[in-house]
Structures are given as C-alpha cells and as structure tokens.
C-alpha cells in the first residue's frame, strides 16, 4: 500500500508530465525574450500582436474555424439522427450500423486519410476542402453519436410515446419532444466535434493539398523554418479555444445530466 502522501506525489508528477509542455508553451508566449529561456526575462503581449499581424496565421485560424463549423454541424446532424435511429428503432443489421458509426474511433487516422484520398481521386477532387471536411465529419461522428445516445437513453421512451399517443406522428414527435429534450446532449456533441475538428492534424495534413492551410498545419510548417515566439502565441490561442470549448462541453453535459434526473 502506498501512503496518502506518496500517492498524491505520484499523481502530481503524472499531471506535471501531462501538462508541463502546455504550461511551458503558454508561459513562453508571454516571454519578453525572443529565445525560449527560463526564467522569463519579462512579460509582453508582442508575440500575440505579431501573430495577429501575420495574415497567414489569421487566415489559417479562419480556415480552421470554417472547417470546424461546417464539419461539426454536419457530424451533429448525421450523428443525432443516427443516435435516434439506433437507440429508438429496431431494424435489420442494427448492430452493424452502430459499429459502422463508431468505427472511425478505432480505425487509425492514417487509414481514414488514405481511404479519403482514394475517394477524392475517384471524384477528381485532388484533395482540398470538401475532402478535409468529409474526414472531419467522419472522426467527429462517433463522439456525437455517443453523447446524444447517452442523453436519449436517460430520457426514456415514455415521453415520446406520450407525444404519439396525443396525436404527434414520428416527425412531429422528434421536433416537438425528442429534439428539445435531447438538446443539451446535441450541443455537447456539437462542441466536442468542433474541438476535434479544430485541432486535427493528421487527416488534414494528408488530405488537404497545398490550398487548404488550417492552424495546426500552419504551426507545423512555421516550426520547420524557425522557432519564433509567434508560434507559441498561435499555439496558446489554439489551446485557449480548445479549453474554453471543453468547459462549455462540461457545462452542457452536466445540464444534460441534471435534466434527466
């Protein structure tokens, strides 16, 4: 048996190992020195100004945001409908469809990217935005499906049956009862899919081609030429956005839990 103190120390070390790089990047983005030296020689916001004055970085953030909004919205619509179908109806190959929607979670992203490239070649697309979005929809789907299914499970079928008993057909029941009650789960799924799309690197890198530059790709390409504090600033923006969205997700999933009970 480990003592309480030993246990706590180990936990702290594990957290330090996980979060030290993130803290370091954040700290260095405010470092007055051009070089990543510790301790910082002073604090400045110059690197953020630099980053926002670089049109390529701003363009990359906008591109990432655009892709994430489109991909997350599509993943949420498809994932929500799939969750309703899978958790409320029984049909042939039920388990097969569930497994298919969950598959992107276990299939390596490299394989997904290669498959998407093959598809894009067949469609004469040569990579680019549509294929990147398709890839991001794919990897966002299992997350939306999981979060919305959990919410639907918590709701139970009683209220939907009540709506049908009172004269609502299947479509009216979905829009008047199922969707409003599942909404915290749907929004949580949307936020999760947005986060996953926003900082995806591998699938984007392999399918984007030269015309589409997202912020993770921009940071990666900048690193190959220089280690500028500007990169720390850009990275910190991505981290801040992701953390903010995860907090939002936490908020909605807690909301979701409270409403069910």
């Amino acid at each position: 048996m480990l003592g309480r103190v030993t246990q706590k120390t180990w936990s702290m070390l594990v957290y330090l190992f996980l979060f030290a790089p993130i803290l370091a990047v954040t700290l260095m983005s405010f470092n007055a020195s051009r070089f990543s030296k510790y301790p910082p020689t002073g604090y400045t916001l110059d690197w953020y100004v630099d980053a926002f004055e670089d049109p390529a970085i701003v363009q990359a953030i906008l591109t990432s945001a655009f892709i994430a909004i489109v991909a997350a919205s599509l993943a949420t619509i498809i994932g929500t409908l799939a969750a309703v179908a899978i958790s409320r109806y029984s049909f042939r190959l039920h388990e097969f469809f569930r497994a298919t929607f969950m598959a992107p979670l276990i299939i390596p992203e490299v394989v997904i990217a290669v498959a998407l490239l093959a598809l894009s070649a067949n469609l004469n697309l040569q990579g680019g935005l549509p294929i990147v979005i398709a890839g991001h929809v794919l990897i966002g789907l299992p997350f939306v499906l999981t979060v919305v299914s959990a919410r639907l499970h918590g709701l139970g079928v009683d209220v939907e049956e009540a709506a049908m008993d009172l004269g609502a057909n299947e479509v009216q029941t979905f829009f008047k009862v199922t969707l409003p009650l599942a909404m915290p789960g749907v929004i949580a799924g949307l936020v999760l899919a947005f986060t996953i799309s926003f900082d995806n690197f591998l699938v984007t890198y392999m399918t984007a081609g030269s015309g589409t530059v997202t912020i993770p790709i921009k940071i990666y390409s900048m690193l190959r030429f220089e280690v500028s504090p500007k990169i720390h600033a850009a990275s910190t923006i991505v981290i801040a956005l992701t953390v903010a969205l995860m907090l939002l997700y936490q908020f909605f999933s807690r909301e979701s839990e409270e409403k069910t009970h």
Partner: peptide
C-alpha cells in the same frame, strides 16, 4: 397510436 381515438395516462406520467 396517433391515428386512434384513445389516450393513455402513463404509469410514470411522462409529462413533458
């Protein structure tokens, strides 16, 4: 169910 002239009071009420 929505085509029938019946209405049901559910065991667990199922209010919205």
């Amino acid at each position: 169910p929505y085509e029938r002239p019946t209405n049901l009071v559910f065991q667990h009420l199922a209010l919205f």
